[in-house]
Amino acid sequence: MNGIDITLAGCTLTALGSGALWWRDQSLIVVSDLHLGKTERVLRRGGPAMPPYETRDTLIRLENDLTATGAGTVICLGDSFDDVEAARTLSETDRLWIARLQAGRRWVWIEGNHDPGPIDMGGAHLAELPLPPLTFRHIAQAGASGEVSGHYHPKVRIQTRLRKISRPAFLFDSDRIILPAFGTYTGGLRSDQCVLRDLMRPEAMAIVTGQIPRVVPMPR
């Protein structure tokens, strides 16, 4: 399992190449923006019938990280479902799969803007979760510290010697870390966009996801 250690509010956190965040001392893993059930929501709203495999693909990758880390606690940082209805209509297979992943683990669903309501799924449902000195919430708040959040689907674009490479990325500075989207059907917001530049300190760094995660200064 490839990861990069960072320190936030004195805690050592490992950013994994998959886009998950691993807090070894607490045996706790964090993923953000799974957007499960996206195909169904798009279809329900009259959009195209996309290949209905995104929930399966996302869960496979999540399961791989759970197996590799042996995490005892899982925090889903919000937008875990593409909307509340998508959570409700998830297939029996996928519900059982999630239940299997939850067995023997503490599981927390943080509310996101896509899934604000209560969800008929095991685990705790919280608006946010303080685990001092860290706080887990969906959308970063200006002025917060020790904050772990998601929502923005950050990605970075890096000009290498031969080509530009664009990938989902963690953004972090001394106050916060923003997780990339973990879901399969998710786009991204580039780190040089105003909202992310404003949120992150000038010395912020980015961890590029991939087989082997890489650290670079956050492209602004």
Binding site: I158, T160, R161, I212
Partner: peptide
């Protein structure tokens, strides 16, 4: 593995 190597160089 070219892309990985390029990223490593750049990093």
């Amino acid at each position: 593995s070219a892309e990985e190597r390029l990223l490593a160089e750049e990093e």
